[in-house]
Write a protein that binds this DNA or RNA. Structure first.
Length: 280
DNA sequence: TTGTGTTTTATTGCCTCC
DNA sequence: GGAGGCAATAAAACACAA
């Protein structure tokens, strides 16, 4: 690599007087804004070593306008420093610049760009996290909808059977009513069956579950699920919005908690920031 | 070799904080 | 008002397929 092993040499620095540029002073000028050689020698150029600065041959060969990449070693040191702390105090900036043979402005720019890169990566990570959460929730929701459908059809089939049985009982009672008085037992049976049917047909959309041996009847109209475990699963779905929803947020969004949780500061590997770009 | 996409280095303009 | 941060962007350097 052409730039390997080169240093950005600041002539003033070797006199124990590091040149500190103002915020808007360019590190070097590209084709957009050329600077002459006199300016270049004041501002500093890229060289393999401080000694090269004084070698006229090298000076002639190397265009001062060329943008040079940092060496692997420089990048490694900067990365280490970034891992320690992604913000740069003036003292650390000066020290790093001195250690690396760079201008403080270059160090600051490198940190600026590094933070931007980190933020992009972090956004990608967060997106993946939220997407997988969404996918899981979506699949749970879909299976609950399926289960709901199955339970509905089960209720319908049971209701049908009950009605058939009831019809049989009614007709047999009709046949016997002439010759025999209605027995107490039969009357009770009828009452029970009617009562059960009433309960089956009550509630929203006939949503009731009858099982004398099973859990308690839930007839609130909110859920088919008989106990708190199921209710816990279903309740948040009340606020679930499909893609073509009107977007009103009067109901609780199923995903709001997930998004909130995902947005909460997390511990990342390698001492990375805890939040979106907030460091510990 | 060359065209093209990606990464890195640097600038500019705007904003916030002290 | 100056310093520092960030977003947007330019442009050089680099990677890589054709």
């Amino acid at each position: 690599m052409e730039s390997a092993g080169r240093f950005f040499f600041d002539p003033s620095a070797c006199q124990g007087n590091m040149l500190v540029l103002g915020k808007r002073d360019p590190v070097f000028r590209g084709p957009r804004s050329m600077m002459n050689m006199e300016e270049s020698s004041k501002r500093g150029l890229f060289f393999s070593s401080p000694e090269d600065f004084f070698e006229e041959e090298y000076y002639d060969e190397q265009s001062p306008e060329k943008k040079r990449r940092l060496t692997a070693e420089q990048v490694h040191l900067l990365e280490n420093s970034f891992e320690l702390e992604n913000k740069l105090e003036p003292e650390r900036k000066s020290q790093l610049a001195k250690d690396l043979g760079l201008q403080p402005r270059q160090v600051a720019v490198w940190f600026q760009n590094r933070r931007a890169r980190w933020k992009t990566k972090q956004l990608e990570r967060d997106y993946d996290l939220l997407k997988s959460s969404y996918d899981t929730l979506r699949s749970n929701y879909d299976s609950l909808v399926k289960e709901n459908e199955n339970l509905k059809s089960e209720v319908a089939s049971l209701t049908e059977k009950l009605e058939a049985k009831e019809a049989t009982i009614t007709s047999s009672l009709g046949q016997e009513s002439d010759s025999h008085p209605v027995g107490i037992a039969n009357a009770s049976a009828l009452q029970v069956s009617v009562k059960v049917e009433d309960r089956l047909s009550s509630g929203s959309n006939g949503s009731a579950v009858v099982d004398e041996e099973g859990p308690h009847l839930v007839d609130s109209g909110d859920s088919y699920f008989p106990n708190d475990n199921y209710v816990g699963c279903v309740a948040p779905l009340d606020g679930f919005h499909s893609e073509d929803d009107d977007g009103s947020d009067d109901g609780r969004s199923y995903f709001s908690d997930v998004f909130a949780a995902a947005a909460e500061p997390q511990q990342h590997e390698e001492g990375e920031p805890l939040g979106w770009w907030v460091w510990s």
